[in-house]
Amino acid sequence: MATMLAGRLELDPRKFVLREVPVPEPGPGEVRVRVKAAGVCLSDVHLIDGSLTPLFLQVPEVTLGHEVAGVVDALGPDVPGGWQEGDRVALLAGERCGRCANCIRFQAPCLQGRTRGVDYDGGWAEYAIASQHTLVALPDDLPFDQASIVPDAVSTPWGAITGTAQVRPGQSAGVWGAGGLGAHAVQLLRLVGAAPIIAVDPLAAARERALEFGADAAFDASAPDLVQQVFAATGGRGLDVAFDMAGVAAVREQAVKCLGFGGKLVLAGLTPAPLTVPDSIGLSFLHKQVLGHYGSAPGDVETLVDLARHHRLDWSRSISDHLPLAEAATAVDRLTRKEGNPIRLILEP
């Protein structure tokens, strides 16, 4: 039996291990992809440390990795003829459950979507299995490392901006956390015409990076007069929309205070900490909203790949380093410690 190296999360007890596992065979409607690049996300770190737990995983362990790009290696039965071996592809970060009421009625959205590398095996491996519905064709000039991060690090903030928040040109926007999600949020807000764009981060290097990615201003989250700075930068109006891209409870309380009348706070970063709004009367009186967000909508990854194809977006600055798959634990440690202030570390089998 052929084997391959894979980065596995064992749930009981919680432990990350690298070991040889059987090379998977594609089933009906599936393809096997030879992985060329896989992103290391803060969600992977939280899965390993236990602050996030798979909702729908039915086995005691899973191969991590929800940001994946590679080459079609083998086709299972009943895969449409449009796909063939050698095709360059990115893999969507999840898929429909096929079981909930909306899936049964062919409605959107799926109510219990499964996440790659969380609820089923992901791409921290030499090969990955993917439903043909989750394949996104890549142009030849989009490198695998950049393509791999689109299905989460780029598409999640894109979905938050264009879908959940429905940001319009000229609206003021704040981004809390200028890391893997936040740096791209700044870039994408610039693309859709938000103004001004204000980045908030406690790290000076992250604030500088946000300015390079297109922020109009970047403020220190620990500044005692942060709220006043935000209102001054928006002409006294406050923010039309604020994005928590950090998944930090204190960020949310701070961001709500920076919203203007009718402002929206979108929670894209994940944390198990309770959500609290100290001034709930002010929230109601000023018609503020707090909106949850997860992932992206169907077609978002394809749209972003097309934007890259036409050179409207470039993610070369987003790739902080490449490491071999065998050093996945090192990548996790570096991201945990924020060594070098990375946007995305990439594993290459």
Rank of each mutant, 00 (worst) to 15 (best):
M1T: 14
A2L: 11
M4F: 11
R8D: 06
L9Q: 00
L11G: 10
P13V: 10
R14H: 11
V21P: 06
V23E: 14
G27R: 09
A37D: 08
A37H: 04
L52Q: 13
P54T: 05
Q58Y: 01
P60F: 02
E61A: 15
T63G: 05
L64N: 09
G65V: 12
V71N: 00
Q84N: 05
V89D: 02
G98T: 00
I104L: 12
F106M: 13
Q107L: 15
P109G: 07
Q112C: 00
T115N: 12
D119I: 01
G123C: 08
G123H: 07
A128H: 06
Q132H: 15
Q132F: 15
T134A: 11
T134D: 07
D140A: 14
D141K: 08
D145Q: 04
A147R: 01
I149L: 14
S155M: 09
S155K: 01
G163C: 05
A165I: 07
P169M: 02
P169L: 03
L181N: 06
L189F: 07
R190C: 11
R190V: 13
I198E: 06
A199L: 09
E208N: 10
R209F: 05
L211T: 07
E212F: 00
E212C: 01
S222P: 01
P224F: 03
P224R: 04
Q228M: 13
F231Q: 05
T234K: 13
G236A: 10
D240Q: 12
V248S: 06
A249Y: 02
V256H: 13
C258Y: 00
T271E: 08
T271V: 10
P272W: 03
P272E: 04
A273H: 10
A273R: 14
P278E: 10
P278M: 11
D279M: 08
S280H: 07
S284D: 04
F285I: 15
H287W: 09
V290A: 02
G295S: 08
G299P: 06
G299F: 01
D300R: 04
E302N: 13
T303R: 15
L304F: 04
A308G: 04
L313C: 08
D314F: 04
S318N: 14
H322A: 12
P324D: 08
P324V: 07
A326N: 06
V332E: 07
T336E: 14
G340D: 15
P342I: 13
L345S: 09
